[in-house]
Amino acid sequence: MIELKTPAEIQRMHVAGRFVAEVLSEVGRRAEVGVNLLDLERHVRGMIKRRGADSCYWDYAPSFGRGPFRNVICLSVNDAVLHGLPHDYTLRDGDVLSADLAVGIDGWVADSARTFVVGTPAEEDLRIIRATEAALEAAIEAARPGNRLGDISAAVWAVAREHGYPVNTEFGGHGIGRTMHEEIHVPNKGRAGRGLILRPGLTLALEPWFARTTDRIVYDADGWTIRSADGSRTAHSEHTIAITDDGPLVLTRRELETPEPRAKV
Rank of each mutant, 00 (worst) to 15 (best):
residue 118 V to Q: 01
residue 60 Y to R: 10
residue 30 R to W: 06
residue 68 P to N: 06
residue 145 P to F: 03
residue 116 F to K: 11
residue 129 I to H: 06
residue 52 G to H: 12
residue 189 K to W: 12
residue 157 W to G: 09
residue 259 P to Q: 11
residue 169 T to C: 08
residue 5 K to Y: 14
residue 45 R to D: 11
residue 44 V to S: 05
residue 121 P to K: 01
residue 211 A to F: 08
residue 202 L to N: 05
residue 262 R to Q: 07
residue 187 P to R: 00
residue 244 T to M: 10
residue 55 S to N: 03
residue 210 F to N: 05
residue 194 R to I: 14
residue 29 R to P: 03
residue 74 C to E: 15
residue 215 D to N: 13
residue 122 A to H: 14
residue 229 A to Q: 09
residue 241 I to R: 01
residue 5 K to F: 15
residue 76 S to V: 00
residue 199 R to D: 02
residue 155 A to I: 04
residue 243 I to L: 08
residue 113 A to H: 10
residue 111 D to M: 04
residue 107 G to D: 05
residue 259 P to W: 09
residue 82 L to S: 03
residue 190 G to F: 03
residue 181 H to M: 05
residue 250 V to E: 02
residue 194 R to W: 15
residue 154 A to L: 03
residue 158 A to K: 14
residue 146 G to Q: 06
residue 134 A to P: 05
residue 187 P to M: 01
residue 90 T to I: 15
residue 73 I to E: 03
residue 263 A to P: 03
residue 85 L to H: 11
residue 28 G to S: 04
residue 257 E to P: 13
residue 99 A to S: 15
residue 108 W to D: 13
residue 107 G to S: 07
residue 87 H to W: 07
residue 63 S to W: 12
residue 203 T to H: 09
residue 233 R to S: 09
residue 65 G to W: 07
residue 24 L to P: 11
residue 201 G to F: 10
residue 190 G to N: 11
residue 223 G to Q: 04
residue 100 D to Y: 04
residue 30 R to T: 06
residue 254 R to Y: 09
residue 104 G to L: 04
residue 34 G to T: 15
residue 91 L to D: 06
residue 83 H to K: 12
residue 189 K to F: 08
residue 147 N to F: 06
residue 28 G to F: 00
residue 38 L to M: 11
residue 130 R to F: 07
residue 11 Q to N: 13
residue 94 G to A: 02
residue 205 A to Y: 01
residue 230 D to K: 07
residue 215 D to L: 09
residue 265 V to Y: 04
residue 105 I to A: 09
residue 243 I to N: 01
residue 123 E to T: 14
residue 46 G to W: 13
residue 161 R to P: 00
residue 156 V to K: 06
residue 235 A to R: 09
residue 117 V to G: 05
residue 85 L to T: 15
residue 176 I to N: 02
residue 165 Y to A: 05
residue 76 S to C: 01
residue 112 S to V: 06
residue 174 H to Q: 13
residue 157 W to N: 08
residue 215 D to P: 09
residue 65 G to M: 07
residue 154 A to V: 06
residue 118 V to F: 08
residue 221 A to V: 15
residue 40 L to I: 14
residue 219 Y to S: 12
residue 165 Y to H: 03
residue 12 R to E: 15
residue 90 T to R: 14
residue 48 I to W: 02
residue 60 Y to L: 13
residue 174 H to T: 13
residue 190 G to A: 10
residue 234 T to H: 03
residue 57 Y to R: 03
